[in-house]
Amino acid sequence: MKKFLYILLPTLLLCLPAALGYWAGTHAMAAQVDKTIQWVEKGETLAGVLSVTKLTDEQRNNYKNAYSNPAVDAGVISWAVPNQPTPFVGTAPSPGQHQNAYINSWQMRNRQELQNPKPAGVYRIFLTGGSTAYGSGAPSQEQTIGGILEGLLNRATGKKDGVRYEVFTFANPAWSSTHERIAIENYLSELQPDLIISLSGNNDVFWADAGRNVLWFNAFADEYYQTLANAALKIGGRKALSDLPQVRPAPQQVPASTVAYRLEKNVRIGAHALQNVGVNWVFFLQPTLSVTKKGLTRREGDFLSASKDYYLDCYKAMSSSLSSLALKNFRFVDLSGMFDHLSSAEDMFLDQFHFGDKGNAAIANAIHAELSKQLGSGTQRP
C-alpha cells in the first residue's frame, strides 16, 4: 500500500498544476460568459439601454417627451426581447413575460394564444417586422402598434360587419425582410391568415449601412449564441466555430440599388407563397428619423444618423421598386413621410428608429386607415 502511495503521490503532484490551470481557465471563461450574458440582459429594457449607450444629456434625460404620460417607467419597458433559437429564422422572441412584454407559445407578442384551427367569425392578421413592429419602447402590451391596431379594427370595422379581428405580432428586433419572408413562407402562411401586413424596410438599410448582405448574414442574436457556443467549445477543449467569409460585412455600404433589389426579391418570394394559399400582403414602409421631413426637436436632432443621405437614397430606391410591383396579392404603402407635417414643438421619435406610445398610435391609425378602405365585409382583403 505504501509503495502504491509513493507512486501515486508524484503523479498527483504532477497533475495538480494542470488541473488547477484547467480550473482557473474554466472559471475565467465562465466569468467572461457571465459578463456577456449580463451585457445582453442590460439591453432587455429601455432603462438598461439608456444606462449603457453613449448619449447626450438631452437624449438620456428627455426620452419621456416621446410618451403621452411622462410618468412612464423605463425599467419595465421591453426593448431587446430575449431570443431563443428558432427554426429557419435563426432566433425569435422567447415565450413568457419579459418586463411589460408578453410572448405567447407561438413566439408572438400577444397575451392570447393563437387558436388553430381558427375559430369561426375571426379575421386573422399577422404583423411582421423588426423592433418597431415588435414594440421596442412601447409603455404597455396594448400600446404596441399591433395592440393598438387590433383595438381600432374591432371598435370600428368589427362592429359593422360582426367580425372579430385578431392581430398577432410576429416580429423581432434586428430582423430584416429576409427573416420576415421566411417566417411568412414557412410559418405564418400555415396558420390560416386572412391578411399579412409588414412594417418594414428600415432594418434592410441598417444592415446594408454596415456592409451586410440581408440575404445571408448573422443578426445580433445569432452572434450572441455563436459567442456562447464558442465559449462552451473552449471549455470542452474543442475548436471554435469557423469564421465564414461569406457572412463577414463588406468594408463599404451596400449600394442602394442592391438594397432595393434584395428587398424586392424577398417580397416576390413571400407574395408567391401567400398566393398559393389565397392570402394578400400589405407592406408598409416604416417611418425612420433619417428620411422624415418633420421639424426635429433638439433631442431628435441628436439622434440623426451620419448616414442620413444613404438612408434617403435607399428609401427612395425601395419605394420605387415596391411601388412598381404588379403582383395580384401585394400592395405597397409608403409611410416614411407620415410625420413630415409635424413641427419641432413635439417629440415623436424615441430615437432613430423607435417610438413611444404617441408614435405607435399614429402608425397604427395610419395602417388602420389604409386597411379600412377595403375591409368591412368580413371577407374582403386589401
Rank of each mutant, 00 (worst) to 15 (best):
V267K: 09
L274K: 03
A30C: 03
T379L: 10
Q143F: 00
Y224H: 13
D309L: 12
T53R: 15
N266F: 02
R262I: 01
E300Y: 10
N62R: 12
N172T: 10
T26P: 00
V122C: 06
Q226G: 04
T144W: 03
H368R: 07
V52W: 09
K358E: 02
K118V: 10
S68A: 15
P87R: 13
R262C: 00
E113L: 06
F4G: 04
F303A: 02
L241A: 11
I148Y: 01
A71L: 09
A271Q: 11
A80I: 01
P10V: 07
F332A: 03
S105W: 00
T157G: 06
T292V: 08
A18N: 03
H368A: 14
S177N: 11
T227C: 08
A210Y: 05
S200D: 06
G237N: 09
H27P: 00
A101C: 07
R109L: 07
P173E: 10
S189I: 01
G75W: 09
T292Q: 12
Y261L: 10
P255I: 04
S189G: 10
L9Q: 06
Y311F: 15
P95Q: 11
L350C: 07
Q32A: 11
D57V: 10
F303Y: 15
T53Q: 14
T26Y: 08
Q59L: 08
A271P: 02
A231G: 15
G147I: 11
P87D: 13
K293H: 13
E142F: 03
I103H: 01
R268H: 02
A229F: 01
I148H: 01
T36F: 10
L55Q: 11
S321P: 05
I77D: 01
D73K: 15
G359D: 02
R299Y: 06
T128I: 11
A19Q: 11
G135E: 02
R212L: 08
P10T: 04
F217H: 11
A19I: 13
I367F: 10
E150S: 09
R298N: 12
T292Y: 07
T53K: 15
A171G: 09
N100C: 07
A345Q: 15
K358N: 08
G121W: 08
Q352Y: 11
Y187T: 11
G96R: 12
Y315S: 04
V205A: 07
I197K: 02
T258V: 13
A28P: 00
E370L: 09
N104L: 07
A221D: 15
E190C: 08
P382N: 08
G301T: 09
R262A: 00
N218C: 05
V33Q: 06
G151R: 12
S336R: 15
A317C: 07
V76Y: 06
E150Q: 15
Q286M: 13
F126R: 03
Q192N: 14
T56C: 06
A28G: 01
V282F: 00
W207K: 10
S305W: 12
K234P: 00
R212E: 02
V33H: 00
S68R: 14
V277N: 06
E44R: 15
P10A: 10
L233K: 14
